[in-house]
């Protein structure tokens, strides 16, 4: 039976989509829902500390360089222009006083949103627990997602 829960998969590491994920999660938590965000693949960039990851293999190191930075370095899904788009979008949002991504993430954390990270994609990208922000509650697999999602009123994949 569905409980008063919301479960959102954050697969994308695009700035605009991560924005949507945190805004919806904040709204769900504000409405009293027990809200969980599952970060997987590119979405993991939204919960990385932003320091260079300590990958072991050559490919892992290359991936770490290509995929460097944390939530401040996410690029929009369109009009990225090799990183300039991010700066322009951030300026437009600041001018309109929209909360920044780090502020939104902190608001979600303050409202009790649970942050979980996918073990398998961490292994592929050679991201370790130490590379993630300390607010990440647990490192989990698909069964945990299924259990949460099956009991949720809202399930989204972003």
């Amino acid at each position: 039976m569905a409980e008063n829960k919301a479960t959102i998969v954050v697969f994308s590491g695009d700035m605009d989509k991560v924005f949507a994920a945190f805004i919806i999660a904040t709204g769900c938590a504000a409405a009293g829902m027990d809200t969980t965000l599952f970060f997987t693949f590119w979405g993991l960039n939204a919960i990385k500390k932003g320091e260079p990851i300590k990958a072991k293999s050559l490919l892992g190191k290359m991936m770490g360089i290509m995929n460097r930075g944390g939530i401040e370095r996410l690029n929009p899904s369109r009009f990225s222009f090799g990183g300039i788009g991010r700066i322009l979008f951030n300026k437009m949002m600041r001018d309109k006083k929209v909360a920044s991504l780090p502020e939104l993430r902190q608001t979600a954390i303050d409202l009790g949103v649970h942050l979980l990270a996918c073990k398998m994609s961490m292994d592929v990208l050679e991201i370790t627990r130490d590379d993630l922000i300390p607010e990440v509650e647990d490192i989990v697999g698909v069964a945990t997602f299924v259990k949460e999602a099956a009991n949720s009123k809202i399930q989204l994949f972003i």
Partner: peptide, 14 residues
């Protein structure tokens, strides 16, 4: 005043 979605609601919940 000056805040945009979702901050008024997030603050209200707090």
């Amino acid at each position: 005043i000056g805040q945009l979605c979702p901050m008024p609601i997030a603050l209200l919940a707090k």
